[in-house]
Design a protein around this nucleic acid. Structure first.
Lengths: 145, 145
DNA sequence: GTACTTGCAAAGCTTTTGCGACATC
DNA sequence: GATGTCGCAAAAGCTTTGCAAGTAC
């Protein structure tokens, strides 16, 4: 079983365990999120799900997003200007690269345990999770000039 | 001359240098931002400025915020649920602690140069700046229980 | 005097909410 | 069959925009 299937099943289990209902729309949305590595917006999720469920509404997308966040199974990248982007590909906090020219978002493969550990020692805060975004020009945009 | 006065003058110089106009509202807003360490929202800035300029509007606050961001003299903390908070106290990127219980935001006194340096070496991105938020329970909320 | 800025109101966006109809358990 | 969920429309919040009047230069 591959990683995405694993994540899908894990989330389905949580839905059952919490007494929530397993609707076909939910499964479609979760499947889409788990398989996406491009950090979609709510509207992009909506457009994709609409192909199979023409009657779906954005409200349902947001309700499912909210459910997944409550399970800690979805990361939200918050942008004041163009709304949030979501990362359901991997549920554990990790840094992101954001291109200031083309707005592309990429997962940053950076070891963060030691950073968080050190901060937890220094801080008077008890760190639960983090959000880390690094902004710059991606290699593609740098080559185009 | 203290640090805040220094920052205020630095920003005033930038306004002049860029051919923008030095209005009394702008100075008041910048002064407020430079002296605040509590990461105010646009509305909190507005309420404070209104005391001296009763006719001020939120639009002017946002326009000044936009100007300062274009100068790289204002950090924006983006939250999808309750709008942005601003940090004009120090203009260089630094991490923040955010209490998940009382929503307090504090500057995190953490050395980040080495982290950014390492990422710049590893990454195919050319990092210009970052946003780093650490979420958890602050010491006050922990004691209250 | 020119052109940038202000303040007001309206518009724009994303996200949330209320509610009747429907589907899951 | 009970109740959680869906889909629609309307509402809510924050932020931006258009424009006439005012102000800095």
């Amino acid at each position: 079983m591959n990683t995405q299937e694993n994540r899908l099943n894990k989330i389905i289990d949580k839905i059952k365990k919490n007494g929530h209902r397993l609707t076909s729309q939910r499964i479609a949305i979760i499947k889409y999120l788990v398989e996406s590595s491009n950090h979609p917006s709510a509207d992009e999720i909506y457009s994709s799900i609409k192909k199979d469920y023409p009657a779906t509404s954005l409200a349902t997308i947001y309700k499912t997003i909210s459910l997944l966040k409550s399970y800690n199974e979805l990361l939200e990248l918050e942008f004041s200007d163009k709304g949030s982007r979501f990362d359901g590909f991997s549920s554990s906090p990790h840094p992101h690269f954001i291109c200031t020219r083309c707005s592309k978002i990429e997962d940053a493969e950076i070891e963060t345990d030691s950073i968080v550990k050190q901060i937890n020692e220094d801080a008077h805060f008890q760190i639960e999770y983090f959000k880390m975004n690094f902004y710059g020009i991606c290699s593609q945009c740098r080559n185009i000039k």
